[in-house]
């Protein structure tokens, strides 16, 4: 299988606080990987290290056969290959829905405005937000914002999509609409790396589940293994706590 991202011996410390300790794992093309684990275990930090919003303290991130942590690597070129969806949506407040999906394509990918709008509309349709092109973020509900944020990331046509707890900031009645979109994306063969507390969702969509505990990967395997026959005591305890 073709590895899209290969993470080797990744470390991250904030001052003397070591948050990630020797993380090794990879994401294959077309694969959906969910990262679960208790609060503070370092899931967000790992995801943010993958797209270099945080600078790792050590280790390698291999992408296309190159270590992007090498000094001379162009991180901007790398970042546009990864789509990121944040817990807090982070739509550009000064742009309407359409422009949120267009501005990156035009400024970063240097697409023409016409082409960018066409691509944006395509993905806004995918997430069911094409009727809101002229709305500003402040006009949208949380679920709608998050669907636009997904479209914005998809419009860059990235190799991998990263999701950091995309439904945690949503009111319960809006969680479903976002998970539905993500499920459809997963089925369409998109490569996805998802941090989530939605265990049902993780079980359903993922090809592989990574369980993190205190800055290390405690267990990794197909959802069947993690959720039904966890090998590690730590995994079992975590699931008992969360699935009650």
């Amino acid at each position: 299988m073709e590895k899209v991202i290969d993470i080797q011996h990744l470390r991250k410390s904030f001052g003397s606080h070591e948050v990630l300790k020797d993380i090794n794992f990879s994401v294959n093309k077309g694969e959906v990987v969910c990262i679960i684990g208790s609060s503070g275990s370092g899931k967000s930090t790992l995801l943010r290290c993958v797209n270099l919003l945080e600078t790792p303290t050590g280790g390698k991130i291999i992408y296309n056969g190159e270590n992007i942590l090498d000094d001379n690597h162009d991180i901007y070129l790398y970042r546009r290959k990864l789509g990121m969806v944040f817990q807090q949506f982070n739509l550009f407040n000064n742009h309407n829905v359409l422009n949120n999906c267009v501005v990156g394509q035009v400024k970063v990918l240097k697409r023409s405005r016409e082409e960018a709008e066409k691509v944006a509309m395509k993905y806004l349709k995918v997430v069911g937000m094409d009727r809101y092109v002229n709305a500003k973020p402040k006009h949208l509900s949380g679920g709608q914002k998050q669907r636009v944020a997904i479209a914005r990331a998809l419009a860059m046509e990235p190799d991998v999509m990263l999701f950091d707890e995309p439904t945690s900031a949503l009111d319960p009645e809006m969680v479903g609409e976002v998970l539905k979109v993500m499920k459809e994306l997963a089925e369409s063969g998109l490569t996805m790396l998802i941090v989530t507390h939605e265990m049902e969702f993780a079980r359903e969509v993922s090809d592989r589940v990574v369980f993190m505990d205190k800055g290390v990967i405690a267990e990794e395997g197909p959802p069947e293994q993690i959720f039904n026959h966890p090998k590690e005591e730590r995994t079992r305890e975590f699931l008992k706590r969360t699935l009650k």
Binding site: N51, L53, Y76, L77, R79, R80, L82, G83, M84, F86, Q88, F89, N90, L91, F92, N93, G104, K107, V108, L109, A149, R152, A153, M156
Partner: peptide, 18 residues
């Protein structure tokens, strides 16, 4: 300005000036 605005822009590959 909310830090999330910067992060979202960086995440789609914009540099500081963009």
């Amino acid at each position: 300005i909310d830090k999330g605005q910067f992060e979202a822009a960086h995440a789609i590959g914009m540099n500081h000036v963009q």
